[in-house]
Amino acid sequence: MTHPTPVLELRDVRKTYRLPHGQRLRAVDGISLRVMPGEMLGLVGESGCGKSTLGRCMLRLDDVSSGQVLFEGRDITTLSERKLRPLRPGMQMVFQNSTAALNPRRSIGDLLAEPLRVHPGPDGRRRAAATITARLHELMALVGLPASALARYPHAFSGGQRQRINIARALALSPRLVVADEPVSALDVSVQAQIVNLFAELRERLGLTYVFVAHDLAVVRQISTRVAVMYLGAIVECGGTDDVLHAPAHPYTAALIAAVPRPMVGAPPAMLLRGDVPSPVNRPAGCRFHTRCPQAQARCSAEEPQLRAIRPNHEVACHYPPGEENPPA
């Protein structure tokens, strides 16, 4: 049996920022993962846990400090910007803040045409004006906006419409991988559902592969086939969406799920975690979660648990996952 090449592969990726006074902030602290074609990976965790940094490293929008990033099997970790350029159309990003991402002084048509003008077409030649215009109309239809939107400016649109425009721009060059950083979290609930549906539709129509960075677990469940849970720069649990969300093996995942305020009266009260997320500058030794973990034991503050499979396609970095009678020595 031949295995398909992952669209994206990370091998022990680290991203460390140097702060004044010789301190180091380990934003991404040794992450390995593979995203297969057609997969939708949800990356969840609380603010500051390194989700956005990891997202940018995936697309080489940030350089990694160590480790390797492979896009469609090709090591892009240290490629120069010039060598990276022909690969850029294949991998695109959608950001949270739909307003900041759009220059207010340029029309939507102009904003969307830019990547099409800058990058050559599939034949290696510059795209003709008529080709670009046709593509702009296609993109509008794809994201559910009227073609008349092309002549208008960003301020004329609501938050949800601007997010559609951002998605259209990310799709302009027909990427195969889309990394979306909190693409719906700034939107109102009634609009959020529209955009969540749009992502699902686009995947079916275009065969895209997604990485979704999000903090809303219900949104992540709707949109992902697999979920990776991050805490202080590392993945602490990873697996099929409902395996992770309905049978969490890491106490942090369990706490995160329990803390989601469910839109129903009479849901069991949340199991409360103590304190806030520690600073990534001074991350706890041993298990990075042990300072807040309700079931920590002596070993947890001494020895760092490694990510290991507890079932097929379900990995956890915890010494004492539930249901394991005899934890490994």
Binding site: V189, A193, Q194, V196, A200, E201, A218, R221, L245
Partner: peptide, 20 residues
């Protein structure tokens, strides 16, 4: 329009069209 955390995952969310 709120995606469910448990139970069946709808193929599409029942979204409200338009904006307030």
């Amino acid at each position: 329009s709120i995606p469910p955390l448990y139970g069946t995952r709808p193929h599409r969310l029942p979204a409200i069209a338009g904006v307030p």
